[in-house]
Design a protein around this nucleic acid. Structure first.
Lengths: 196, 196
DNA sequence: CGATACTGTAAGTGTTCACTTACTGATCTT
DNA sequence: AAGATCAGTAAGTGAACACTTACAGTATCG
């Protein structure tokens, strides 16, 4: 018995760096050598913290989800002037969407979907996002009597799609910052209201 | 002078097979060996038709776009009972979305966006889809007085996003066929009408 | 026919990359 | 201080893969 195990602390410390590298280069191009260099260590060290590269990627997805979820929770927690929580999240998203690089990560992951672990991580992340958004919409529409109606479920998926296309537009340089913001805000409002 | 050059015919003949392989395995995992095997030839032969793997991929994206565009054109050309062309495309999409495997291809391409040729191919494809959809919406709303208003532009992007999330839902097995159909149909109708 | 190009087969080649092994030094517990 | 485990360095290994080269066969033209 000797020396405490600092593995989990190391993991937490490296994750932001690894996440940045994955978001920047995608899965394949983010070689383990690059990841290690970005972390300032040898590849070896990373392999003592995770069994393989795939595990690093899955951990990154979970980390990025946590980051986004935290940001949204903060926005909701703030007491705003006459806006519903959903409206505040929408306003926040239209300003800061894509800054975390989550979407590049998702696109990278979507091409690795023949790996069951990666697929599961992505599925869980999407499902949680969807659930979160659906609840926000339901509360906003004041329809939150325990059960979320089907329309809200669908609107929440459309919302996720909106976020995705904004991410793609950013990635492919099809949409400028102003367009992205307008798209998120105006179509987001339409989905929030449900056309009423 | 001897023997006519059948290269372009060969390319056309191989493209569907190559497209299928790319859609099935993504970019990296669709190795040139696999592509050749699927085509029933040696890798060599493919390299006489395209300069490199990237060119095969770009050609595949263009091919798949052509396929989708043709399908939509056919739907529009058919004279329907009291439905606008946009409504017919929507109905068609909600039934057949994703069958061509275009979305897997897009996800594969999105992780290769540091390659300018791939990025350009994707950007062109998205831009053309967006333009097409925007025109359909404009005609449907009877606002087609020469210029497409901003709302319609945004709605068209949201539409693209809707298609994308349906593709993701299919890929990650988050959405079943019925859900996908409902999502496309109901949220598509909302975007078509613009909430009026 | 015979020259010229196209078509297909077979076997490399050089590189990249995920992952390993061997070893040295540091640090904590008893 | 001893013993054990952790932390970091350096080099290497084997496999996968994009792409090439060399060559034998064949169809098409003058």
């Amino acid at each position: 018995m000797s020396r405490p195990d600092l593995s989990s602390e190391k993991r937490e410390a490296f994750l932001p760096v690894i996440a940045r590298a994955f978001a920047e280069h995608g899965y394949r191009r983010a070689t383990t050598a690059k990841l290690a260099e970005a972390c300032g260590v040898r590849e070896n060290v990373l392999y003592r913290l995770w069994p393989d590269k795939k595990a690093m990627f899955v951990a990154t997805i979970e980390y990025m989800y946590r980051l986004s979820a935290d940001a949204w929770s903060n926005v909701i927690a703030k007491v705003g002037p006459g806006q519903s929580a959903a409206e505040r999240v929408l306003a926040y998203s239209s300003e800061h969407h894509g800054e975390l690089g989550l979407y590049k990560l998702i696109f990278a992951g979507l091409t690795e979907t023949d790996d069951p672990d990666v697929q599961k991580a992505l599925r869980d992340m999407y499902a949680r996002f969807h659930k979160f958004i659906a609840q926000q919409i339901a509360v906003h529409r004041d329809e939150n009597n325990g059960k979320i109606p089907r329309n809200v479920e669908l609107a929440a998926w459309a919302f996720v799609g909106l976020g995705t296309v904004v991410g793609i537009g950013r990635e492919l340089e099809l949409l400028g910052p102003v367009q992205r913001k307008n798209l998120m805000r105006e179509m987001g409002a339409l989905l929030l209201s449900g056309g009423d």
